[in-house]
Simulated assay, not measured.
Amino acid sequence: MAKHRALLEDIDGRCNFLAARQASRYLTAAYDQALSPANLRATQFSILYKLARNGPTTIGELAAAMAMDRTTLASNLKPLERDGLLELTPGQDRRAKQVVITTAGVSRYRIAFPLWQAVQTEFEDCYGQKRAEELRNSLRRVLISGFNPWAENERNLP
């Protein structure tokens, strides 16, 4: 085992993906736990928020707003649709389905919001409000950096 370690470059402190995923899993666990009394996971809460805030939207537009691929989004929409919190309806263009939050979805969002607010405040109290704001701003800048994980062209591989 030690022989293999010598061949590996140490990326622990340099890997953007590893650091982001570790923090993401950590925060996801905290938000999922906080939202569990509303029977929602953090991603589901975020989807309901986007729909409540922006109104009906296509799956493609929602995927872009959530920075998710369509397949992952579709798997997150299924339980929300099953529970009657949203509906998938034909859009203007019949090929593009619209995602619409239902009255039950708005109600569930309103139940979940104070739970989200409590965990948000708890995190900011522990991490620091200013640092949390800087963290959010840094993460948003990643999304507009020009780095495109869904680009059609191939990555330069050795």
Results as ranks from 00 to 15, higher is better:
1 M>I: 03
3 K>I: 04
5 R>P: 00
6 A>P: 00
13 G>W: 07
15 C>Q: 02
15 C>F: 03
16 N>G: 09
21 R>F: 07
24 S>A: 14
25 R>V: 03
26 Y>W: 09
28 T>F: 01
29 A>H: 12
30 A>Y: 02
34 A>S: 11
35 L>D: 05
42 A>T: 09
42 A>Y: 15
42 A>L: 09
44 Q>E: 15
50 K>C: 03
54 N>G: 12
55 G>N: 07
55 G>A: 06
56 P>T: 05
62 L>Q: 11
71 T>F: 09
72 T>D: 14
73 L>S: 06
76 N>A: 11
79 P>H: 11
81 E>Q: 15
83 D>M: 07
87 E>W: 10
88 L>C: 05
89 T>G: 00
92 Q>H: 08
92 Q>T: 08
94 R>S: 10
98 Q>N: 14
99 V>Y: 04
101 I>T: 03
101 I>V: 09
105 G>Y: 02
105 G>R: 08
107 S>A: 14
109 Y>V: 04
110 R>G: 01
114 P>V: 04
115 L>Y: 01
121 T>A: 10
123 F>V: 13
124 E>N: 13
126 C>S: 08
128 G>L: 03
129 Q>P: 10
129 Q>R: 15
130 K>V: 15
131 R>H: 07
136 R>Y: 10
139 L>M: 11
141 R>C: 05
141 R>L: 11
143 L>F: 05
144 I>Q: 09
144 I>L: 07
148 N>F: 02
152 E>K: 02
153 N>S: 06
157 L>P: 01
157 L>D: 08
